[in-house]
Design a protein around this nucleic acid. Structure first.
Lengths: 153, 153
DNA sequence: CTAGAAGTTGGAGCGCGCTCCAAGTCAAGC
DNA sequence: GCTTGACTTGGAGCGCGCTCCAACTTCTAG
């Protein structure tokens, strides 16, 4: 455990700002960090590992309140391991559902994009009568998919 | 196009609240909805389709500002189709990156859960180790001394 | 007709997650 | 010593996305 990363170095490495790092410490997400002589923070490797874990929780949209709960459990020692595991399992379930929801929405975005693309094709070949179109490959393609833009979930 | 869904019916179907539906209309996310005699909103099928599309954008974390931009383009007619497609393509790229980030984080959560689980096993059979949170390698399951674990599932 | 539920508006308020400001301390280089 | 710059603190402020309130009007059931 080396304790020699300054707050700016940690900020650079994690992508968080120094502001946010202090904020996280203030609200108990990060335990009080070791200090150098002048009161400046010096982050240890274990702090870094914890911060990276927090970032994974954040990436998966765990709200700060739950992270605080988790951090509190962690600081309470080994006897909370089971609680922590259960929290993570519940969270993981949410995350997987979330990923699936995003995947599905992404898919329908793809469909919509494809629809737009074919629409643009038909505009390119048909609207030449209105005004002189400057470019676009004038491939005639009047394929309109029968569904407009509706989907369901 | 039937125009006979009340705001509460739409709320029920979309999962949004009536408040939020009015809010979306106010900020231009939803075009002014048809009204019944007394001024009450009556949503058409096309409104529903659009709202469902908005929900897919929301599911994929598009900020409201961008949705407003998109809605504005849409209301400007066919000549904005290309812009809209480009917006969606850019968004889709973000979304896919996001999904991948979540997938990876979910994976490391799974690893951590597995670690906790093996840790609990060793607690159950032995006594207790130390703090141990610094994830990774489920080291040799040794223990030192202390109490027994509580709940399991 | 009446009561109560459901709808309307403009505008205020809120929870979250930062983000920044003011005012100060400290360390190093010239 | 002086300057520069990175750090410190408490607390205020902010942007987002709702969420709710007050004060009505309108619809529906009995």
């Amino acid at each position: 455990m080396e304790s020699h990363l300054s707050i700016d170095e940690v900020a650079k490495r994690t992508g968080l700002t120094a502001h946010t790092l202090r904020y996280y410490e203030r609200i108990g997400l990060i335990a009080p960090v070791a200090r150098a002589a002048g009161g400046q923070r010096r982050y240890a490797a274990s702090d870094m590992a914890w911060i990276e874990f927090l970032l994974r929780l954040r990436t998966t949209h765990m709200p700060i309140g739950k992270m605080q709960t988790f951090a509190k459990l962690r600081s309470a020692g080994d006897r909370t391991v089971s609680d922590r595991r259960q929290m993570l399992e519940a969270h993981l379930t949410d995350v997987l559902a979330n990923i699936e929801a995003m995947r599905q929405s992404a898919e329908s975005l793809r469909v919509k994009i494809a629809y737009y693309r074919s629409f643009e094709q038909s505009l390119a070949s048909n609207s030449n009568t209105d005004e002189g179109d400057v470019n676009e490959t004038p491939k005639s393609l009047r394929a309109r998919t029968r569904k407009t833009a509706r989907n369901r979930r």
